[in-house]
């Protein structure tokens, strides 16, 4: 079932934080070209939250949303907030039809877990994107489907065997074990398999001649509002534009400053009063430690400091 039937997107605080952080990352592409010249390709669902945000904050006007749930076409059209171009097709069909001559920000935010289709999409985008583009891919990372398939049929092949059958030996490294199909390890495996697929696409592209291309991973996210999700984000650029890439200074983004490439978004559980108290000290001046009063848990306070600029503010409004 598509997640839009299950989850009210506006109530997903970690996703909200991820979107905001991604927005700051996208903004830095200005070193390549003004953001207004970019195209945003996403999977907007009925909420289009990412589209609204990036249209308003970055001024991106060319927007394409791919939607496979053709049955609810009217509902998507009715909820489309701006002049977003809708493609009612599976991504595997819609992506090859796009014009890739334009610099793009592509965020394929899937509901499901890693699949061959996800990898095929990653490969297609990696081989088609113009230099100066961003590729972001999010997948559900709870457990591999093959684990469930094995639990339903214990007389059959193991989960890992099924996983190898699904993805093929070139994609599943020798060291992968059964526990890599569960929890955090599965999130890590999903990211690395997506990354390898994009790198493979770039490698093939480089074998064709033309200026040498690179895919440079910038950051990964993991978070859990309802289902555990993980995202990998990187920039594709070619040799003549290396300087532009360097001028983006992605490493200076505050959520990347500690050199950690994986940002674990843990939404702190704090009261409004506690938040107000912590905020008076932020941003922390260099060399100062956070003062904690009362019984604010250290862990919650720390994640607040890390994420406060990106967290949503909730209030109930009676109309």
């Amino acid at each position: 079932m598509s997640s839009f039937r299950k989850i009210n997107y506006s109530l997903r605080p970690a996703k909200h934080a991820e979107r905001k952080m991604m927005g700051e990352l996208f903004r830095r592409l200005a070193a390549f070209a003004p953001l207004e010249e970019y195209r945003y390709v996403g999977l907007g669902s009925v909420w289009f939250a990412d589209f609204s945000l990036y249209h308003k904050s970055l001024g991106i006007a060319d927007m394409v949303s791919i939607e496979r749930a053709t049955g609810s076409k009217a509902r998507f059209e009715a909820n489309r907030p701006f002049n977003i171009q809708m493609k009612f097709k599976p991504t595997t069909q819609a992506l090859p039809e796009l014009d890739w001559n334009k610099r793009s920000i592509v965020w394929l935010d899937y509901d499901g877990v890693l699949s061959v289709d996800v990898l095929l999409d990653a490969r297609l985008v990696g081989s088609s994107c113009r230099s100066g583009s961003i590729i972001a891919i999010s997948v559900n990372a709870g457990r591999a489907d093959e684990v469930t398939a094995f639990e339903d049929d214990r007389n059959g092949p193991t989960a890992l065997e099924r996983f190898k059958v699904t993805f093929g030996r070139e994609r599943v490294a020798d060291k992968i074990a059964d526990d890599d199909l569960l929890g955090k390890r599965f999130a890590k495996l999903s990211r690395s398999m997506i990354l390898s697929e994009i790198e493979e696409a770039v490698a093939r592209r480089n074998g064709q001649g033309g200026p040498k291309c690179f895919f440079n991973p910038i950051v990964s996210f993991s978070y859990k509002d309802d289902a555990p999700m993980t995202t990998i984000v990187g920039v594709l650029y070619d040799e003549p534009e290396r300087e532009n890439f360097e001028r983006c200074h992605f490493g200076e983004l505050d959520f990347l400053k500690d050199g950690n490439e994986l940002v674990d978004i843990e939404v702190p559980k704090l009261t409004i009063k506690e938040i107000r108290y912590l905020e008076t000290q932020l941003p922390l001046a260099a060399g100062h430690d956070l003062q904690i009063e009362g019984d604010i848990p250290q862990r919650e306070a720390n994640s607040f400091v890390k994420l406060y600029r990106y967290l949503p503010n909730f209030a109930t409004l009676e109309v």
Binding site: A173, S196, A203, R204
Partner: peptide
């Protein structure tokens, strides 16, 4: 380019 890829090593 292929020697540099993880899939080739796999």
């Amino acid at each position: 380019s292929r020697f540099g890829s993880q899939n080739f090593e796999n």
